[in-house]
């Protein structure tokens, strides 16, 4: 009976029965806590449903039409593109650069990489509070530094700088993750190709470009996959610092969703916005995993 039940799932039942039973509890727990929310989102996205209503009413494509025709929704996606794209790119560049830096310095490598890791452990809500503190026009350390250099700007109060500032907060917190992953990869690169390159008279940049970077490409993709999932979802720093402003400059799709779900308590609308985010995440995940698999092959 048991075998009959599980056989259709497996190609080689004999060999893999234990693995199947080992995986099953996770699948069940995951299903229990994620499938219902998913179907609920799909259901709610077709209902006129807000928290203060007695019962949801069928709305057809009403929420979808409202969401997809809302210019603020698309503008938020546009800003998200800047936020996520800019953030990931900066993290990637800085992360790799600093990993290479650490890789090349002869002494104190462990000490420096340990110290550099610290921002990673700061809770996002604390990151927000901390940067708000640093950038405050009255007593912010960074505001004062900027001022001393003659830059009298209101970083969080000016739409031209606010987005840059919230990206920098994300970069500050998460660059170390990329750095340690890439550095770990660099340390496993074997000596031979590098020595061979030396013999061929390659310069440092050529060694980085043609030997080191290709060898850690896979790790970079993994790091980007994890980060790309979270950069869309997490809005803690924006909630604490700019709350989407000024002039909507930092209202990313994540913050837009927070507003619809929590402030307006519009469950139907939130579900449709949430599903577009899920879709985008999945597409992005697919993309990175595809890249990953092609690397493996």
């Amino acid at each position: 009976m048991q075998q009959a039940a599980s056989r259709p799932l497996m190609r080689k039942p004999k060999r893999n029965r234990t693995e199947f039973w080992m995986l099953l509890p996770s699948i069940v727990v995951l299903a229990a806590i994620s499938i219902f929310p998913f179907f609920f989102m799909v259901y709610a996205s077709f209902m006129d449903y807000s928290l203060d209503m007695d019962r949801p009413r069928f709305a057809g494509f009403g929420n979808w039409a409202d969401t997809l025709t809302d210019t603020a929704f698309w503008q938020s996606w546009g800003r998200t593109l800047v936020y996520a794209g800019g953030g990931l790119l900066a993290q990637l560049v800085f992360g790799c650069a600093i990993a290479l830096l650490l890789y090349h310095i002869p002494r104190f490598r462990n000490l420096f990489s340990t110290l550099f890791m610290l921002p990673l452990f700061v809770a996002p809500i604390v990151t927000g509070l901390l940067w708000r503190f640093l950038l405050d026009p009255t007593y912010g350390l960074y505001h004062w530094v900027l001022n001393t250099f003659g830059l009298d700007i209101q970083v969080l109060g000016d739409p031209s700088y606010a987005m840059f500032a919230v990206i920098m907060m994300d970069v500050w917190e998460w660059t170390p993750l990329i750095t340690i992953i890439v550095l770990a990869g660099l340390q496993t690169v074997p000596e031979e190709p590098l020595e061979a390159a030396d013999v061929d008279g390659a310069n440092s940049w050529q060694k980085i470009r043609y030997i080191l970077l290709p060898m850690v490409r896979r790790m970079i993709v993994v790091a980007l996959l994890v980060r790309s999932m979270d950069i869309l979802r997490y809005v803690d720093t924006i909630v604490i610092t700019t709350e989407g402003g000024p002039a909507d400059a930092t209202k990313t799709i994540g913050y837009y969703l927070m507003q619809v779900a929590f402030r307006f308590q519009d469950i139907g609308g939130a579900a449709s916005v949430g599903l577009t985010m899920l879709l985008a995440s999945i597409l992005m995940g697919r993309f990175f995993i595809k890249v990953l698999r092609s690397e493996e092959a």
Binding site: L135, D136, P137, T138, Y139, D152, Q154, V155, L156, G157, D158, P246
Partner: peptide
């Protein structure tokens, strides 16, 4: 107004 105004909610204003 003080240039920080667009950065402040009631807390930031009170602190200034």
């Amino acid at each position: 107004a003080a240039p920080g105004s667009t950065t402040w909610d009631w807390n930031g204003l009170a602190e200034a």
